[in-house]
Design a protein around this nucleic acid. Structure first.
Lengths: 187, 187
DNA sequence: CTTTGTCATTGACTAAAATCAAATTAACTA
DNA sequence: TAGTTAATTTGATTTTAGTCAATGACAAAG
């Protein structure tokens, strides 16, 4: 587990003043299992940092709950589409366990970007990291068999398997609950 | 078709000097159909802008060519993983038709970021746009049936269907060539 | 404790798509 | 243009995963 402070300080060439200003705009907040960080139809106003805990992004199609991604400790999460475009979110984000988070308002973040170009620089680096992770995920989804996709998840993000339910993992891996159950039973 | 100039100027609050500096670092270059912009195993040094034409990103797994994405005119493209991390690329990028491009060196871009925070700001906005598009693509891949995924592509990026081969589209949509052919025959 | 509800597993069957193979069409070259 | 190669389509079959249904395992509520 890395604290928000550690993460911010891990980026090079950011002045102490900028880090202090950045930190001061984050608000600590605790969520219980099942609490929603974001709701479909509402504009996302916060960027969250998960210091401890885990969250799940999902949306509803044909009355079915489909998991888009999991966010673990030391990661940022928001409904990026909504946060960026200021339009209503198409996704929900819920905590799948009790979570200690910090969050910053969209507005405050934009102000910080103007005041401290180095903060926008840091944000850009973080965004690039997440972009790459997303690309990686997209490539995973192209793994042929259900078993291969599950093995890939074990390999890369084993914590998800401990924290999420079978149903959540199944829709994330694009397979039915029953298929996942069978895949697991055959190691 | 939007020129590089138009795209750069479409972002607000960028000074003429910054735009001029940005533009001056781009080099025009023409590619023929089949030419490679990026190669697996090599570090990606350029960010490309496609003024006219189309490109395809793909990688090889088990001797099979799997399409990750298509890039059309007025879009930026590079092997983001490699461009950002400075590690060897896992993907190829090829032009699927004769293309007029502009490209900027990774190094020059970083220098511009330091000289002009507004350029980094603009780049951040572009990156966010691409991030959102990638998320959208990820959600598409979760459409159940082969037919639904194809219909979704027609709806959202019909140009790809005109420009790419059946095999390229099939791997992009995660289905066999035969399945795509059958889907098409039933409209 | 029992009851109820939720979630995961297992089995039987069905549907969808992959593979293999052949035939047709398109594209390229000499 | 004819001849050759590559790409696409179509058909037959197999494989994979989805659906439906029943059962089992827990956990919370009464």
């Amino acid at each position: 587990m890395a604290s928000l402070e550690t993460v911010l300080e891990s980026f090079p060439n950011v002045s102490p003043e900028a880090i202090a200003a950045f930190k001061s705009k984050f608000e600590p907040i605790t969520f219980q299992k099942g609490d929603l960080l974001e709701k479909e139809g509402q504009v996302s106003n916060y960027l969250y940092f998960i210091e401890e805990g885990a969250a799940r992004s999902y949306y509803i199609r044909d009355k079915r709950d489909i998991t888009i991604s999991f966010s673990l400790e030391s990661e940022f999460v928001t409904s990026m589409y909504s946060f960026v475009t200021r339009k209503p979110s198409y996704e929900f984000i819920e905590c799948i366990e009790k979570s200690q988070c910090h969050r910053i308002l969209h507005e405050d973040l934009q102000t910080l970007f103007l005041q401290f170009p180095e903060i926008e620089h840091t944000y850009r680096l973080i965004l690039e990291k997440y972009y790459i992770a997303l690309e990686e995920q997209l490539i995973f989804t192209k793994f042929k068999s259900a078993k291969d996709r599950y093995l890939e998840l074990i390999e890369n993000r084993p914590k998800i398997i401990q924290k999420a339910s079978v149903g959540q993992i199944a829709s994330y891996l694009d397979m039915s609950i029953e298929t996942l159950s069978r895949v697991r039973s055959k190691i």
